[in-house]
Write a protein that binds this DNA or RNA. Structure first.
Lengths: 342, 342
DNA sequence: ATGATTAATGCGAACGTTCGCCCGAACGTT
DNA sequence: AACGTTCGGGCGAACGTTCGCATTAATCAT
């Protein structure tokens, strides 16, 4: 593996070169003991000329720590895209490296096999902690990890009763911003394209919608809440229903819980000859990369993904190393990106 | 870490339970030695009831292998998206796990620090091999790894002179399919939105264009080749120039080396009142997730990303373990996805 | 019955690191 | 001058695994 038959250089190699015991080399490198300046110098020089780098596996073995963070994510369907993954992973990898850790990605499994995968990584000593994503109500991983007392941070909240470390984006605040923006522009009949009721994230976001409408003294008609799987197709169909309502009930603005549905809504509106941004306002959620290129460009809500990844790792490392934490539950505010659609 | 003060169960724990030496347990689990059936049974039972799982760090220590594959990718600009990452990572992670390996993602660096990052991972014994992506001409990582004789597989080719293991998508073939499709539909004036000449991938794809045009006996006007940074904006501007050409030179079809430029081209065409798919045909490359939702939906070329990731890991593991390889250089064919734009 | 072969298991060693204990020499204090 | 203290550094041990050799008991051929 080394260039042309060079043997791996270890503490002993360095020690031989510097004329000390190998344990002394270790102490110098870790600043553990009092060592004569000239010895120290000799050792550091030998380290440099030999290009010594500590063998991390031996370190892990001794420390009984892997310095690895397990992470697993649901693969989106091929026609969708996880535009968040790149940012989230990159920010976690960076932050982890700065703290002396690495990420260990592993395949996402469904059902019973899911917790098994986490258990296996713990039992084989591969990871010191986990970052969870795509958490939902009653997440078996959270129960398992809490019971085992194994360090983890969830990206996203779960049941309100459970007290565990998380980082999440304040989806309710996002919808509050969107709705307030629409109210300011004079809209009063605002519909919502939402997810099924078993989606915690969806309910959270929707609550921001309800609260803001209520605070403005507006009554939300039941017909205005469309729940579906968050697809482009659903966005179209739901919008067709909304725009077929009688004029006094028909919404003049639509907020969608993701950009994909918002784009479906835009397509339908255009088919009906409506001018999106004028006759009908549409606001999305996610700031998918394509949203800026649509005609009209989509007004949407951007989540601070990089910051979230960073925070997750930050808190997790604190948990692993038993440091006192400033906060173990973080809520980040998303940001309304106003473009032409609403 | 374990539930309520349970100590980690090791080979010795199992051995004590089964009344044998711990090395014998190891042998049974690895099928290394001849062991009496009843002893074997006792041991396996103890393994099961104690829930023994081997400590991978100790294994790695002993085997002097990390069973890790290093991988690093360029983060795309925030307004772009790496829609390939999810698929590529997922397929690599899956394939790696099946072979007993894990992925080790690490931050992508530029300049000298780039090779340093690779060297560090080797010297600290963290990885057994690398998968490289975003390779280009004269890639310093390839030179470094070849010189060190360290196992790696590149996703993408580099200089023709260098002989190293790679997996790549046949970009020339992709453009051949696109151009032939356009020729069949009667087009003869076909322009290309390309990348700068220092892009190997770009030149490769463009060569497929040139060859197919030439084989059809068509002369390619220099004005038809537009080179830029592959952005939406460049796609628009270049298309504006192309459509401003005098009628006898003006292209009736455009092939773009990525979907982003193709979308820019579509926007400009629409602004000029052209009907994309009829008056002007446009074909992209990548099959970005948004492309199917455009109006008209974008005809494009889809790359077999999951297969590429799988092959990369396959070959790399073969390299690491010194297995005889069926092939160490793989070229995968992309697929033309015909939609409405061309 | 004896010696050679085989089967079943034990045991020592090693991978590279860090930690804690020990010891000798130098130094300062009384 | 005797004694405690500090400094500089050596050394043994351990983390959990696998590998190879040694050892004993059982089996077989002579």
């Amino acid at each position: 593996m080394s260039p042309k038959g060079f043997r791996k250089v270890t503490l002993k190699t360095v020690a031989a070169q510097a004329g000390v015991s190998y344990q002394t080399v270790s102490k110098v490198l870790n600043g553990q003991a009092s060592v004569a300046p000239e010895t120290r110098q000799r050792i550091l020089e030998a380290v440099k000329t030999l290009g010594y780098r500590p063998y991390q596996i031996a370190r892990s073995m001794r420390a009984r720590r892997s310095f690895m963070i397990g992470y697993s994510w649901v693969q989106t369907s091929p026609d969708q895209v996880n535009h968040i993954l790149d940012q989230f992973l990159t920010s976690m990898v960076r932050e982890a490296e700065a703290a002396g850790y690495h990420l260990l990605p592993f395949p996402f499994r469904e059902g019973n096999a899911q917790v098994d995968a986490y258990r296996e990584l713990i039992d084989t000593g591969r990871v010191d902690g986990f970052v969870l994503s795509s958490v939902n109500y009653n997440d078996p991983r959270i129960h398992f990890l809490m019971e085992r007392g194994f360090p983890f941070v969830a990206f996203g909240r779960s049941d309100p009763g459970l007290d565990f470390p998380y980082v999440d984006v304040d989806g309710a605040d996002g919808l509050r911003q969107a709705v307030e923006h629409l109210l300011q522009r004079g809209h009063t009949r605002i519909a919502a394209l939402a997810w099924p009721e078993d989606s915690r994230v969806g309910n959270e976001r929707l609550q921001g919608y309800f609260e803001t409408m209520q605070r403005a003294g507006l009554v939300v008609l039941p017909e205005w809440i469309e729940r579906g799987e968050g697809t482009f197709e659903f966005g179209r169909e739901a919008t067709a229903r909304l725009l077929a309502l009688p004029p006094e009930k028909r919404p003049t603005a639509i907020v969608a819980l993701n950009d994909t549905m918002a784009i479906g809504a835009m397509h339908l509106a255009r088919e009906l000859g409506l001018e999106v941004g004028r006759t009908l306002s549409i606001i999305g959620f996610d700031d998918a990369p394509m949203s800026q290129y649509l005609v009209p460009a989509l007004t949407t809500i951007r989540q601070p993904i990089a910051e979230a990844g960073q925070k997750c790792v930050d808190i997790l490392v604190g948990l692993i190393e038993g440091k006192p934490l400033a906060q173990r539950q973080v809520l980040l505010a998303p940001k309304l990106i106003v473009r032409a659609s609403g």
